[in-house]
Design a protein around this nucleic acid. Structure first.
Lengths: 86, 86
DNA sequence: TGAATAGGTAGCATATATGCTACGTTTTAG
DNA sequence: CTAAAACGTAGCATATATGCTACCTATTCA
């Protein structure tokens, strides 16, 4: 489990920090071990769908907003102003 | 791995059949073992994100269209006529 | 009839996901 | 400066994901 890098990308850290949660807090909310969350954030871990769904539920975003085969780009003006366009 | 049931749902079988693919064909396209696909379809398997992303890429739908914590409802008129509303 | 295709089930082997404990470093708060 | 919190890293144990082989049943098709 040591120094591997997985072949896909995730935005877990950004989403967690945006919600002002520590790993420990997110761990408690999701019932996932905090070290496991750390591994995922460092892209050293290939979690299962079940674990991903727990994160998705607690963070309130879809799986595709957290995990992607392609690197996530930076949030642009359009994404950040989405609430204005409805 | 035998007679367990996972705690979430997937629409893999429906999506595969809709695309007229056998398990063997989908297995070749995704580089996933056909028996592994069978286990997933029977909800006896908790695949990893990496495997899910392969399925997502080949099927051309997002992760959330394949996997969900809640049961998928039947496709309704609105879903099936989505292409008419754009 | 019989061959081919699709699917279900099982057993085994190996890799890895996940939890856990411990300890180090860095950052924050008093 | 010091204590606490957050984060990084490592090692170990157990469960399970995944590939693989084999066999069985059902269906299709020549």
């Amino acid at each position: 489990m040591v120094d591997k890098q997985v072949a896909f990308h995730n935005r877990l850290k950004m989403l967690r920090v945006e919600r002002d949660l520590s790993r420990k807090q997110l761990a408690e909310l999701t019932d996932i071990h905090p070290q496991t969350i750390g591994y995922i954030e460092r892209q050293q871990f290939n979690p299962t769908i079940e674990l991903a769904l727990k994160l998705s539920a607690v963070l309130g975003v879809g799986l595709d907003a957290i995990f992607s085969a392609e690197p996530f780009g930076l949030l642009d003006d359009k994404a950040l102003r989405r609430d204005l366009n409805e």
